[in-house]
Computed example of a mutant assay.
Amino acid sequence: MIKSELIESVARDYPHLHLKDAERIVDAILEEMAEALMRGDRVELRGFGAFSVRFRPQRSGRNPRTNKAIFVEDKWVPFFRASRDMQHRLNADGDRNESRSGSSSAE
C-alpha cells in the first residue's frame, strides 16, 4: 500500500470526510511520527508495531558495482518491529504465506 492508497482507504471508510481532509489527517499523523523519531522517541501503534531509531556506527563497506572498498559514515536509521498481534495475523493464513514465498510446504 502506498500513501495515496491509504488516503483513499481512509476517505472510503469515513464517507463524511472529503478526500482533502483524509489527506491532511494522514499527513498530520505521519509528520508527527517523523518528528517523534527525530527527537529520539519511540512510536508505538498498539496491535500494529513500534517504530524507533537505531544508531549504526561507521564502518567500511564495498561498492557492489565496482567491488571497491568505501567508507560508510555513522548514522541513525529507522527500525520497525511488528507487534505480536500483527505477527499472528500475518501467519494465521497458511495459503497466503505459500503463495508469497513462491513454493509450497508440501514439497
Results as ranks from 00 to 15, higher is better:
V43E: 12
L19N: 09
P64Q: 13
G94W: 07
R62N: 05
L17E: 12
V53T: 15
I25L: 12
H16T: 13
G49A: 04
A50D: 02
R62E: 05
A22P: 03
K20Q: 11
D93S: 10
A50Q: 01
M33W: 04
M86F: 07
A36W: 03
F80C: 09
R42S: 10
D13M: 07
R100L: 14
R42N: 13
I29C: 11
N63R: 11
V53H: 01
A22W: 02
L6M: 11
A36Q: 05
E8V: 01
R96N: 06
V53Y: 01
E107I: 01
R65Y: 03
E107D: 09
I25F: 06
R46W: 00
V43C: 10
A22M: 09
S83C: 08
A34C: 10
R12P: 00
K75I: 02
S104P: 00
S4T: 15
S105E: 06
A11H: 05
D95T: 13
R59C: 00
D41C: 01
G49R: 05
F51H: 04
S52F: 00
N63M: 10
I29M: 11
R54K: 15
R84D: 15
F51L: 14
H16A: 12
P64A: 15
R81D: 09
F55V: 03
Q58T: 04
E8M: 04
E73Y: 05
E5G: 04
